[in-house]
Design a binder for these strands. Structure first.
Lengths: 341, 341
DNA sequence: CTGAAAGCGCTAACAG
DNA sequence: CTGTTAGCGCTTTCAG
């Protein structure tokens, strides 16, 4: 690898000091009233020598990395990939660069990634925690690093977050099922310890309780299609089946669908399905699936706004925890049942 | 933000030199035969003071960033998000960290991201170019930075790449259509200048030519669902319709599906559909869609192997350009037509 | 087994 | 308008 050009090289070539070169190359010519001619020769030299600033050296001195870190649980989950994409373009708008890390739903990896980020002097952090632990995150937050949690958050601590009203979403979904006459419902959940999951379960159970329904079950333990597949497969071993399934994510629904298809169970004739998280593809399925949609676009924008304000006035640690309302997307996957008494 | 602990702090606290501290903290105790006791007090102190290495300072001196850069055209495209996810975990296996950038299918952003990466002293680069230009990429390559192109590449230059035989894939798809009796075919393409797109078009046209079919058309200009949607909408304005559509990506197919659904056109009764790129969801659609599947897993693994070998022996610039065979996933979206003569 | 000293490339006082 | 000087925090000779 050919050695890189440094400002020193440029200084030598132009017979100016490194300071002047640095100033010109950082757009501070105005501020220091540097001669037009100097500017020109420096810029010409930089171009000719193919100069690329050494970000590390600059950061080491200035302490500004101009970088935002984003940790998400899984890029292969379209729900998160979509968020990553949106955050990325938002961040760019503010003149920062994003570096993305994928924790693979694994706390240990999450911890490593977090350390990586800290050691890279990132200026702000957006995290969708994998949700199993929070100490490591809180510790970094307490050090004063601006941070926003997305989607998954932790209760009872002051880290800012932007999320959806998961209780409400699940409550709405369960009630939709109930109102359609369903009274035997299976709920396939995601990561058990994660706040969104807990809230969803709470909302689900509340609806059951309010309607006086006892015949329900909660199974599963991951926001993955494997989980959805396995749980559905197991369910179908029994002769007695619920009338409806409520999956707590997109990905779980996908696995559930696969199992249902393998067993030739039709939606919604044989079983009804409703899921948390919306996605384009849900509209094109054999039976379009009714979903609880989160306002992803808004979540991302708010998170960024939140983070950027923390970035500009660091002292004032305003606690900003926002919870947005979800919305039901009615499609055709929930059938109306006539209750036989 | 509370000041960070440095090795200096640890040195002071332990009454050892920064050199020794650095060595212990970098796992070089063995190599320098450092006393067990010294190791222990240093490690204890590091833990207590909550030490996190400053990556920039380390890199500035050593020149090793331990980082691989990945540039992809769009994280919101599941095909690429999936690749990002796989690359990310492969890279971790080799003890490196990935930083991901999303060019948003925009060459200008791609150029900026590339500069960002270079200035961050990344050690290797995996790029899925947005495909419109290549000079900036080649320039970085010529400087000696290990690099592999994925999926999209450029012909006639020596940068290593791993891709699919796009000609063959499109040729196979077109022939499948032809063998099913289709003789009026619309092809909706992606980014026109990109090599995969060009090769696919070539394969498609070759098949048409071989079969003596004149009634075909190529439209569109982006690997996006909007493109698929718009082109299909426009198509449906005409009274005369093709018997089959061949979309050159997943995302295009999605948009096409949306338009078809809006106009109540059934697949495959009214029109047949085949698409490049496989995806789980294609199996669960109203009509499961036949696709040309790329061996994504293998592509990612090979790319990494390629990159890692370049990383270990930099002198030997072996040119490694590999093209893998795609595979047709037969599903139900292509109907058999009886030709009326 | 340990340490002193010399920078990596850049920026930021301070000083003209 | 420009330059000198002093580091940022770490690693790496070189020298015990």
């Amino acid at each position: 690898m050919s050695k890189k050009t440094t400002i020193k090289d440029i200084a030598k070539k132009t017979s100016l000091s490194t300071t002047t070169v640095s100033r010109v190359l950082n757009g501070k010519s105005e501020k220091y009233r540097i001669a037009k001619t100097s500017q020109e020769i420096i810029e010409a030299a930089a171009l000719e020598l193919n100069y690329v600033a050494n970000h590390f050296a600059a950061n080491l001195k200035s302490g500004k990395s101009n970088t935002i870190g984003l940790i998400i649980p899984s890029l292969s989950n379209p729900f998160f990939a979509n968020i990553a994409s949106k955050i990325n373009s938002e961040v760019r708008k503010f003149g920062y660069t994003t570096i993305i890390a994928d924790s693979d739903e694994n706390v240990e990896i999450e911890k490593t990634e977090l350390q990586q980020f800290v050691s890279r002097n990132i200026e702000g952090l957006i995290i969708i925690p994998c949700g199993k632990e929070m100490e490591h995150i809180e510790q970094v937050y307490q050090k004063g690093l601006p941070m926003v949690l997305l989607d998954r958050y932790f209760e009872g601590i002051e880290i800012p977050f932007v999320s959806t009203d998961n209780f409400e979403g699940a409550f709405m979904a369960a009630n939709l099922l109930i109102n359609h006459g369903h009274n035997s419902i299976l709920c396939i959940q995601g990561v058990i310890d994660s706040t969104p999951n807990k809230m969803r379960i709470k909302g689900f159970k509340q609806a059951m309780k309010d309607a006086g329904i006892d015949d329900f079950k909660v199974v599963g333990d991951a926001f993955s299609s494997e989980n959805g597949y396995l749980e559905t497969k197991m369910l179908l071993q029994n002769k007695i089946r619920p009338t409806a399934i409520f999956t707590l994510s997109n990905t779980i629904a996908m696995g559930c669908l696969k199992a249902l298809k393998e067993e030739n169970i039709r939606i919604p004739q044989d079983i009804s399905l409703i899921t948390f998280d919306d996605h384009l593809y849900l509209d094109y399925l054999a039976t379009p699936i009714t979903s609880v949609a989160q306002p992803v676009e808004i979540i991302c924008k708010l998170a960024m706004k939140n983070l950027m304000s923390a970035l500009s006035n660091k002292e004032e640690k305003t606690i900003k925890q926002v919870i947005l309302k979800p919305e039901i997307k009615y499609r055709e996957s929930v059938s109306r049942i006539n209750i036989i008494v």
